[in-house]
Simulated scan of single mutants.
Amino acid sequence: MQARMKKYQLTRNQTENLLKTEPVGRLATLGEDGFPYITPVHFVYMGGCIYFHGLAAGSKLANIQKDGRVCFEIERLESLLHDANPCDTNTVYQSAIIMGRAEVVEGLEEKKGVLDAIVAKYTPQHRGREYPENMVKMTAVVRIAVTSCTGKYYPGTA
C-alpha cells in the first residue's frame, strides 16, 4: 500500500520552530502492564534531540529504563472555526508526532547543559545560577533521540 501525502505538512523548519517554542509535550511510554502511559512534560529541543527532566524515580522513568521506545507529541491550538453545523466546527492548529528512543543522560556536563536550557526556556530570570548538588543528583534528565518526526497543520482556509 502506498502512503498518501498529507495535504498540510509542516516543513522541517516549521516543525523545529514548534518544538523550540511550545511549552508542553506529551510523552508516551509503554507501561509495565502493557498499556501506553502518557505524561505531559516541560521540554527543550536542542541538537536534534528532545530533553526533559524529572524525579530520578517514577513510572515514566521505570518505563523508559525497561523499553526506551517512546512517542512524543506537541500541538499549538491557534483557534476554533465555529460553524452553524457542529460537525463542521474545526481547529486551526500545528502539531508534531515524534518517535524515538529515550535514555537517561549520565554525563554531568550534558545534564547541566540541559538544565541550563530548561531554565532559559521556562524561568530565564534564573539563568546563570548554580544548582544545589543534592538537587542535581535527585533529578533525572532524559534524552529522546528522534527516529522519525511528522508535522502537520490546518490553516483554516482550504
Results as ranks from 00 to 15, higher is better:
Y45Q: 11
E106D: 12
G151P: 08
G48Q: 00
S148Q: 13
K7R: 10
S79F: 02
T29K: 01
F43P: 14
R143F: 07
L18C: 08
L77G: 14
R76T: 15
M99C: 13
I144A: 01
Y51A: 02
A28V: 06
L115G: 08
V114G: 11
R127W: 05
T39E: 15
R76A: 10
V105E: 04
R69I: 04
R76V: 14
V136K: 09
S95A: 04
N13T: 15
G107C: 11
E103S: 11
E110C: 06
D67G: 07
D88Q: 14
I144E: 01
A84T: 09
I64T: 08
V119C: 15
P124A: 13
R127C: 15
P124G: 10
K112W: 03
V114R: 09
E75C: 07
Q125R: 03
K60S: 02
F52N: 09
E73S: 06
N63L: 12
E103M: 05
V41W: 11
T150Y: 03
Y122V: 09
T15G: 08
F35S: 06
K7S: 10
K152N: 04
G34V: 07
G100N: 05
A96G: 01
H42A: 08
G113F: 06
G68P: 07
M138E: 10
A57W: 02
I74S: 00
G48S: 02
M135D: 10
G113D: 04
E130T: 10
T15V: 13
A28Y: 07
I98M: 05
Y45F: 15
P86M: 00
A56V: 08
K7F: 07
R143V: 08
